[in-house]
Design a protein around this nucleic acid. Structure first.
Length: 571
DNA sequence: GCCGTTTTCGGCCCGACTGTTTTCAGTCG
């Protein structure tokens, strides 16, 4: 049972309690427990086996018992009990913007509506107008909401959201007056996928800015528009704009960056210290005197904390860590000295070894791993043992011409039965990856990894879970399951920086770094030279996993990398 | 349902926007 599955159970319980109008505090307790489980660096099953479930913040006796039953039996009698009289369609209805748990429940109990299709029909036929609070505007709002729900495909990958927000900001700079503007929300936190985009603007004259925003070209729909806050639908994405007074810029940036769970924790801390925190500033509870707000640093410091980087603000324990003064110094782009996963024309890359090396040099790197595919993957050609002399000669030549250290790498395919095509002493960096038979069941995939880790002793396992953002699928394994094997066989997990992969995910990095004290390997998996810049997306994800430079191999000197390659492997 | 160097009971984050509520509940982030 994975942490995600347990978190889903708790979240499902919270949802049902919400529909039924249960205590908001009980609902919050389940939601918070879900978030904590989701973000645990350790498998919850291990914690349970040690009898330490209630040591996890947010988990008490009652929730621990429910988790235990679920881990033991795969079922929850409590969930079954409370969901008996709830039609499944209600959950989908709540995905429609504007429909929350209370309205979904009313639509069901007062009008017998159990699905989006039934709701749509009732709206079109004006059958709901007898209900309290249902006028023509409400009808239109919900019909629009249904249409939007059908267009939205859920969350979109970070790299697709970035240009949309960039366009909004560029447009507003040319068509409105303000002092400052910045993206906030999950975009600023660097989440791998984005639900909606938040943009913050500092101005003392917000109304014209809001006007310009909702009239932007490309706005498909205006979802809300007030004096200081507006939401539109553009480029297939919801974008929220929030205007704040200049003197509240820091407080607003903090508030609007989130995450929600992080903010709640911070406001609770503020209350304990006799303050009230909102998007306008930090105020003394008794006198309403403002004590901080111009910058984020001011606010965190006034609460007795160092400034916490946005990439850490997920309520994964960062506030508690900040209190002890032990926040890690997160890895940054300027620390990166090399790329651990790059292809060339020797397999399916479009640029030569030399071109890739020049780009690496241009990025300020000291070294590079050229890691072309080994044979066995039909579509990409791939290197055979007899190709190695030419491959190595090309690498050595580029090394001399460009003037950076280039390691001879090889990305080998782990076959469906777990055999690995070839290893060779002339290969300095051996990368193993699954590219075929992706739909096997979990046990089979883990067996394949284990067999290869044991027999071929690769240095790195590439894109360990096979996830593709914005699409279903990936391998039937979680990062935490692969990481257990990595730990056992001393194989370094890759954080693949391909914008659609970012695999292992942020929680995986957190597990590797804080649980196993294991480094991660950032690899852009570049197939042309321009893709080397994707390293930046990987660095952001590594930050989200609390990685300091020591835990990122890419920050090591070429000598230190050589030392690592010699030790522990192929002895 | 969780939690506690002021509490094992009585608290629990905060505000904007919407619709139609003449004072506020629901939704959202």
């Amino acid at each position: 049972m994975t942490n995600q599955e347990v978190a889903n159970l708790l979240r499902q319980i919270a949802k049902i309690l919400e529909i039924k109008g249960d205590s908001t505090f009980r609902i919050r307790a389940y939601e918070e427990a879900a978030t904590r489980v989701e973000n645990l660096a350790e498998p919850i099953e291990d914690i349970w086996k040690r009898g330490e479930l209630t040591n996890v913040p947010g988990i008490g006796e009652s929730i621990a018992a429910k988790i235990e039953e679920y881990l033991k039996t795969g079922k929850s009698s409590y969930l079954e009990e409370i969901s008996k009289d709830i039609p499944k369609g209600l959950f989908e209805m709540m995905e429609v913007p504007g429909i929350g748990p209370r309205l979904a429940w009313r639509l069901y109990t007062e009008a017998g509506i159990q699905s989006i299709e039934e709701l749509e029909r009732a709206l079109v036929e004006h059958k709901l107008q007898g209900l309290r609070g249902f006028g023509a505007k409400m009808e239109k709002k919900l019909l629009d909401g249904i249409q939007m729900y059908r267009q939205l495909s859920g969350r979109i990958p970070l790299y697709l959201a970035l240009p949309i927000v960039h366009n909004v900001i560029t447009y507003l700079k040319g068509h409105a007056k303000f002092v400052d503007i910045a993206p906030a929300g999950s975009l600023r936190r660097g989440r791998a996928d984005i639900g909606d985009c938040d943009v913050l603007v500092a101005t003392d004259d917000p109304i014209p800015v809001m006007e310009a925003f909702v009239k932007m070209p490309g706005v498909a729909q205006v979802l809300a528009k007030g004096d200081t806050k507006a939401s539109v639908f553009t480029g297939g994405l919801q974008v929220d704009l929030r205007a704040v007074p200049v003197e509240s810029w820091g407080a607003a940036l903090q508030y609007f960056t989130g995450s929600k769970a992080h903010n709640i924790k911070l406001r609770e801390l503020a209350i304990k210290k006799g303050y009230k925190l909102n998007e306008y500033g930090l105020f003394k509870m008794d006198t309403d005197e403002k004590v901080a707000g111009r910058t984020e640093e001011e606010i965190y410091n006034a609460l007795g904390l160092p400034w916490i980087p946005p990439t850490m603000r997920e309520d994964r324990g960062e506030i508690e860590l900040a209190m002890t003064g032990k926040l890690p110094r997160l890895v940054e782009m300027k620390d990166i000295k090399g790329d651990l996963h790059v292809h060339s024309t020797f397999s399916d890359g479009t640029d030569t070894v030399e071109t890739m090396a020049r780009k690496a040099k241009e990025m300020g790197y000291e070294w590079l791993v050229i890691s072309d595919h080994a044979t066995g993957l039909g579509v990409v050609g791939g290197l055979k043992p007899e190709d190695l002399p030419d491959y190595i000669a090309a690498i050595k030549e580029a090394e001399k011409k460009v003037g950076i250290r280039i390691f001879v790498g090889l990305e080998g395919n782990i076959k469906a039965d777990g055999t690995f095509l070839f290893t060779d002493d002339r290969v300095e960096v051996l990368i193993a990856a699954i590219h075929t038979a992706l739909n096997q069941e979990k046990e089979k995939i883990l067996d394949r990894y284990e067999k290869t880790f044991k027999e071929a002793k690769p240095h790195i396992v590439a894109h360990p879970t096979g996830r593709i953002l914005g699409r279903r699928g990936g391998l039937n394994v979680t990062s935490s399951e692969v990481l257990q094997l990595c730990n056992k066989y001393d194989v370094v997990p890759e954080l693949n920086c391909t914008p659609m992969r970012l695999d292992i995910d942020d929680v995986g990095v957190l597990t590797a770094v804080t649980q196993y004290h294991m480094p991660v390997a950032l690899g852009t998996d570049s197939h042309d030279a321009e893709e080397l810049v994707n390293m930046e997306l990987g660095v952001i994800q590594a930050q989200r996993g609390w990685a300091d430079p020591d835990h990122v191999i890419n920050t090591w000197s070429a000598e230190k990398v050589e030392e690592w390659l010699r030790s522990g492997h192929k002895q």
